[in-house]
Design a protein around this nucleic acid. Structure first.
Lengths: 412, 412
DNA sequence: TTTAGTAAGTAAAACGTTTTACCACAATCG
DNA sequence: CGATTGTGGTAAAACGTTTTACTTACTAAA
């Protein structure tokens, strides 16, 4: 803006403005008529003039002006209202668009919107959240962002939220169960409209209980079942059944199991696998079960398997990572896949499958899970908003067997 | 709490309470003397009694009580103050511990703290942030959380912040430059006390400029240099120099370069590499430069390199991922490493180096970088708080050559 | 005996929104 | 012509803290 425009807008002569400037020590330059003045400086001036018009004792006025200066002309809703000549509440309603119960004339609406953009008004979401009790932000807590499948899930959730213009912020647990939640516990309740917990945390029950007390909408995605929290899980039983049927049909009768049973889902898969073997009349050979807790241990397990006197004809790994690793170890030890040994994965997020070994695996449809999780969280938030109670639901998603070239009939 | 305790605390007979309950339709059960009553119900009761004592017109009282009921006895600082018999401001000062300019007697302090825990008071961080203009939360934006090195950096930043009890929330860009920031732009300014941008975003300059206008403290970590933003970078020139010297000393004279030049740091590394070759008097062979944009392309590049009429004696990859991949491709093609070809990586976050091929690489000390970034951001926040302007700084971190068994002298 | 200083607080404004309750005016209806 | 119903707003309270400017009671010094 230029000085002469401002003089017009204020309806005061330049001399008066200069006097005020000096009296209250404003840092606005009013030297040249054609000088450009920033919106913020203009706002400061307007605020000062308004403060002067209030007929307060001199002392109070000085205080007010000092605060205005300190605030550096930050533009608030009331500046927009003042500039557009309307009330604050009206500006709020127009810029929010959510309260459409009250009619507003098209003309005023345009004027306010124009003023807001002209002044560069940016709403303060903190104030908004305080008053409305809604932040518009969803939190995501991820057990381990290093896990490709969990990462895929978060990404899908993020994409889903992008569609509805919500923001999602995440915190991750860095292998320490519950740490992320412990860390954000203090804020979780007020900052987030809802929370998605991705992956199963070992100590999550305690945390779930705390969250329930806080009455925050929560959905657990790919975590464990809990009677008080809505969950979206993948049907491990079905996945392993499909996989086992595939292996059995190929003729495998001696199958090793490799999985990190720190994860609830892996525990489920193992139990199903044991049952299936029993049902199929296969021996319950404990020496073929391996439960490594990390990749280093997993490598050792695979080496042990390959060195067994009677090695199995197939290795069922409960993650694509482990499977890829097992395949690598086997290849480097001179085995051929799938001729010498069949190796299968789980998860189906092995982005590199075309590069390394194309794995037979179980794909868990992460997009579908993300969609369901978001839908359920939205439902909870809506119900919560109406001050009502919601009942948790459990959604179980069907996985799909993907057959690639890491599995074949065993050698005779 | 029990009913008789409450009667004592209120100093009113049960009958009077029951009357109030019926009159204002409170959902608190006051039937049995020995009945347990939740803290929240007790708070509701106290608030109602207080509202009644205010001598307002009946209508206003009803309004107030309705609001109290709607609020479900959410415990605020003023409840604690009321219960402890002190003013609200005092409670704030005691529970915050930050304003120690004012003396407080030990006795009152204990009483207030005891009351707060007894009522289960949890501060509302939104209200706090609104008034104090500090959220205590640092934002982190990551270009690609799938990149192991960036993930390591974020993790180190997170650990550093954990030490100082701050919370860090992140958003990630999902391969789309600037998307994360676009998404969180609206909130960034008010929700976060500062922002760490991890990795180089292609369109980050625009975003930097916007952030500067918002006067939000920002540090760019492992990103590109920018005159208006503080940066913490790794010295690519030094890293490549060390690596080149190693290869040259081993006797390599024909070195292929494989790197994703979408990243600024890779561009820097390439330029340094070109200069070093020139200085060493090696031919400037364009056919040995490969710039794949993803892993699939990278695999193809490596295949092409191996199929060259006169293949190079070494492949310099600008990431451990590419190098690992190149090694795999080479091994599967029947080459031996390092006997047949030398392959080097960059970054030094290859967590699996003991499993696959132990790579010669350049380690960039991520912890050190994280510490510096956090320190610098804290500095900016402090200066910002005092209403002063800060000058951006550039911190360059020295990488370190790690020699493992993927590099050796070329075959004669 | 006044004065100054200090310990231990209090009262109220402020942060920037949203939301509630109300109002003026015009048009319509019986 | 008076009552009713929309239309297009306004004024002010409320959200739950933090912070500023006062206050009171007591002690020590002059």
């Amino acid at each position: 803006m230029f000085l002469n425009e401002i003089v017009d807008a204020c309806g005061m002569p330049v001399e008066a403005l200069r006097e005020i400037k000096i009296k209250y020590n404003l840092s606005i330059s009013l030297e040249d008529e054609t000088q450009e003045i920033s919106i913020n400086d203009y706002i400061i001036l307007r605020k000062v003039l308004y403060a002067l018009s209030e007929k307060l004792p001199e002392e109070k006025i000085r205080q007010k002006i000092n605060r205005i200066i300190k605030n550096k002309g930050n533009i608030t809703i009331s500046d927009v209202a003042m500039e557009a000549g309307v009330s604050v509440g009206l500006v709020s309603r127009i810029l929010n668009k959510r309260d459409n119960s009250i009619k507003i004339s098209e003309e005023t609406k345009n004027r306010i919107e124009e003023t807001a953009t002209r002044l560069g008004y940016k709403a303060n979401p903190i104030a908004s959240a305080l008053r409305s009790r809604q932040s518009g932000i969803i939190g995501a807590v991820v057990r381990d962002i290093g896990d490709p499948f969990l990462r895929q899930l978060v990404q899908d959730v993020q994409l889903e939220y992008k569609k509805q213009d919500s923001v999602i912020l995440m915190s991750h647990a860095m292998h320490e169960a519950g740490m992320a939640l412990q860390q954000i516990k203090h804020i979780v309740n007020y900052w987030f409209d809802g929370l998605i917990i991705v992956g199963d945390m070992v100590e999550d029950i305690i945390i779930y209980n705390e969250l329930i007390n806080n009455s925050l909408p929560v959905v657990s995605l790919a975590g464990r079942n809990h009677e008080k929290v809505s969950t979206v899980t993948f049907d491990d039983e079905s996945g392993i059944k499909q996989l086992f049927a595939h292996l059995y049909d190929l003729g495998h009768r001696s199958i090793a199991f490799v999985g990190n049973i720190l994860h609830t889902s892996v525990q489920n898969r193992m139990h199903t696998f044991i049952n299936l073997q029993r049902e199929a009349g296969l021996p319950d050979d404990k020496s073929l079960f391996f439960t490594p807790k990390n990749t280093t241990e997993a490598v050792q397990c695979v080496k042990n398997i390959l060195n067994l006197e009677k090695p199995p004809t197939a290795i069922l790994c409960t993650s694509d990572d482990f499977a890829q690793l097992a395949a690598n170890v086997a290849i480097q030890a001179g085995w051929k896949i799938p001729e010498d040994i069949t190796i299968t994965g789980y998860n189906g997020t092995n982005e590199l499958h075309e590069l390394y070994i194309p794995l037979t695996t179980v794909r868990q449809p992460s997009e579908q899970a993300a969609v369901e999780a978001v839908k359920e969280l939205n439902r909870q938030i809506q119900i919560n908003l109406q001050g009502m109670e919601y009942k948790p639901v459990n959604i179980n998603i069907e996985p799909e067997l993907i057959i690639r070239s890491s599995s074949a009939a065993p050698r005779k």
